[in-house]
Design a protein around this nucleic acid. Structure first.
Length: 346
RNA sequence: CCGCCCUUAGCUCAGACUGGUAGAGCAGUCGACUGUAGAUCGACUUGUCCCCCGUUCAAAUCGGGGAGGGCGGACCA
């Protein structure tokens, strides 16, 4: 595969590369590596799926992929995960991520999984973290993590250490590329800035877009209606899409369209299939789309009505999460252990 | 170690001084209107009032004790 093809595979469906020139230069070499870190906090949802599916592209582009299950980070960020649930949640995250990679057509065994506590406690790492703490202002650390770390009137120290550690992770895992959702941008820009002073190199950054929430704004971990969960039943998925904010002709904040753009069409494309919208004869009959662009054009021109679109998207999304849903349903002990207050004692 | 403040609906908080078993906004649910959702109207729902003990006919409210959270002071050989 030539560099141009690898670059295309690597950047398709992403929001930004910092910088694209650096990425292209990297891909001209052998054995580039990428990593993504996920803190095992709340349940994984469809937004994670768009981000993780990208890893399949990276593998196809011959990039080594490491997934960091950042257990310490999950606790450091305002104790989002209680300390004694870190193992259970890490296990759940890893298994779910494996399912996503497999569903994307790649072998999860080609990805190396690492947990934060495996290396973040060693002497070298810890010492460098202290040195960073000495050199970084409160304001800088807070700004770096502002999109990721929970906001509070009385913030904990952990949330400030968080971006420093994440910067060190890039170096500790020897990653050329730091990959994640664009919410991670602030942290990786800090990493690019300070890592060279701490024995590392500025990572190339690759950012996935974040899906809008189905209620209109951002996806909210605490608002179930704002997102499709990976273990939602087909009926629940269809109901959530049906209830989604989706203004006729308006692309802004439109989670339904984003699901199509970032999930449905990329997947149909791989299978060589079209997207069919069933529409009653009185409104003009069925519609068939080969690509997202033509669907969006029809939506913007109001030829395609949300009420016709939604059921088709609901079914498509339900099918997309089906393999992951099955995996979770087959291992109920994973969720029961990770979220005992919700799934325990079943 | 000392002092002060906070803890009431899913969330943010009012009510406490002047005891009579609770309210607002937001969220949520349901209708109306749209061929979806939203917006807008209309209706509705929601509570161990942090815990324990005491005073009282009666305690979210008063007294005592405790827990959790926040802020400040002091100590600084």
């Amino acid at each position: 595969m030539d560099t141009a093809d690898r670059l295309e595979l690597t950047t398709r469906h992403t929001q930004e590369a910092v910088t694209e020139d650096e990425l292209e230069a990297l891909l001209a070499e052998d054995d580039p590596s990428a990593y993504i870190g996920l803190a095992p906090t709340g349940e994984m949802h469809i937004g994670h799926l768009t981000t993780i599916r990208k890893l399949a592209d990276l593998l196809k582009a011959d990039i080594g992929v490491t997934v960091l299950v950042a257990d310490l980070h999950a606790h450091l960020d305002d104790e989002k995960s209680p300390f004694d649930l870190l193992d259970a949640r890490s296990a759940y995250y890893e298994e779910t991520i494996r399912g996503m990679i497999e569903a994307a057509g790649e072998d999860p065994d080609d990805v190396s999984f690492v947990r934060g506590t495996e290396f973040q406690l060693n002497e070298e790492y810890t010492l460098e973290m202290y040195r960073m703490a000495a050199e970084t202002t409160l304001a800088r650390a807070r700004r770096a993590g502002s999109e990721v770390v929970r906001e509070s009137d009385s913030p904990n120290l952990g949330g400030l250490l968080y971006p420093l550690m994440q910067s060190l992770d890039v170096d500790a895992l020897d990653a050329d590329i730091a990959y994640g959702g664009v919410d991670q941008r602030g942290i990786y820009m800090l990493a690019r800035e300070i890592l060279p002073d701490h024995g590392g190199e500025s990572p190339i950054c690759l950012f996935a877009p974040l899906l809008s929430g189905l209620s209109g704004g951002k996806i909210s971990a605490s608002d179930d209606a704002s997102k499709v969960n990976l273990n939602d039943s087909p009926d629940e998925v269809i109901a959530k899409i049906s209830d989604a904010y989706c203004t006729m002709g308006d692309v802004e904040d439109n989670g339904v369209l984003e699901y199509l753009q970032y999930l449905v069409f990329p997947i149909l494309d791989e299978h060589g299939e079209d997207f069919v919208v069933e529409r009653p004869e009185e409104y003009g009959g069925n519609l068939v789309y080969e690509d997202y662009g033509s669907l969006e054009a029809d939506f913007v021109s109001e030829e395609l009505h949300p009420a016709d679109l939604k059921p088709a998207v609901g079914i498509a999304i339900s099918e997309i999460i089906d393999p992951i849903r099955k995996r979770l349903d087959d291992q109920p002990e994973l969720l029961a252990a990770a979220y005992p207050e919700k799934y325990g004692d079943r």
